[in-house]
Computed example of a mutant assay.
Amino acid sequence: MSTVSPPWTYTLHLPHDPRAPRIARATLRTVLAAHGLTHVIPTAELMASELLNNAHLHTTGPYALRVRPMESERLRVAVWDTDPRVPPGFTTDGATVAVPPDDAESGRGLHLVRACADSVGASVLRELGASKGGKLLWAECQWGVGDV
């Protein structure tokens, strides 16, 4: 008798704490290893790291990491936070984002995400009932043929 593995999704809710991004990256590595996706860990971790650090640096509330497989052997790494403002690298208006100068100490994170991801996106969430609103930024990457 064969069994079919149900689709999986993991969401880790995080407080606004400087240790939270590190804990989320460790959780991401564990989840991907448990699903046999160790070869996609470096890319997924880089994307998650940049999105988590931006949520921590640019918001004051809690945030969350969500990981889920998508159709066509893609992995979606998403970060929700309470700020509804979408950064320029994730807008859908086609505007390009200026690359920071070589001597800049910050500003490259979203460029790294866009370089590693096959696609990126954003959703602005309205406050409804128990929902806290905010935004969800996501990035997807291929995990490869034959993986589960």
Rank of each mutant, 00 (worst) to 15 (best):
A55N: 08
R66A: 07
V113F: 08
D147Y: 10
G89E: 07
P100F: 04
L75C: 00
E50M: 02
D17T: 08
P100M: 05
T96Y: 15
L136E: 12
S49I: 07
G61E: 08
P88A: 07
T11Q: 07
V148G: 06
W143Q: 02
I23K: 10
S123C: 14
R114Y: 02
L46T: 15
E127Y: 01
P88L: 07
Y10C: 11
E105N: 12
L125W: 02
L65K: 01
V79I: 08
L57A: 14
D83K: 09
E50N: 02
L52F: 14
C116P: 00
L28A: 09
P88K: 03
S123I: 15
S106E: 09
T11G: 04
A24V: 02
L37T: 05
G36K: 14
R25Y: 10
H111T: 05
R108C: 10
H35P: 01
A95D: 14
E140T: 11
D103L: 09
A44V: 03
H58R: 14
S131G: 01
H35R: 13
P15L: 12
V31M: 02
V67D: 00
G107F: 09
R114K: 10
W80F: 08
L14Q: 09
A34H: 15
R76T: 05
L112S: 00
V79A: 05
R108S: 11
L137G: 07
V67N: 00
I41D: 06
L75Y: 00
H39P: 07
E127M: 05
E140G: 06
Q142I: 09
H16M: 10
P69T: 00
A115I: 00
R108F: 15
T27E: 15
F90V: 06
L14P: 02
R29G: 15
Y10L: 12
S131Q: 04
P87N: 11
C141M: 09
P18W: 01
G109Y: 04
A48W: 02
A24S: 01
H13N: 07
T11N: 04
A55D: 11
A24H: 00
A55T: 14
T59Y: 15
D102H: 06
P69S: 02
A33S: 13
L52T: 04
K135M: 12
E105F: 15
E73K: 01
R85W: 06
L51H: 00
A48V: 02
D17S: 11
I41Y: 05
T82G: 14
G144M: 04
A130N: 13
V145M: 13
L112G: 01
A64P: 02
G121I: 02
V77C: 04
D103M: 12
H16A: 10
V67M: 01
M47Y: 11
H13A: 13
S5V: 11
E73S: 03
L128T: 13
K135L: 13
L14T: 01
H39I: 04
D103V: 08
N54W: 03
S106M: 08
V40H: 12
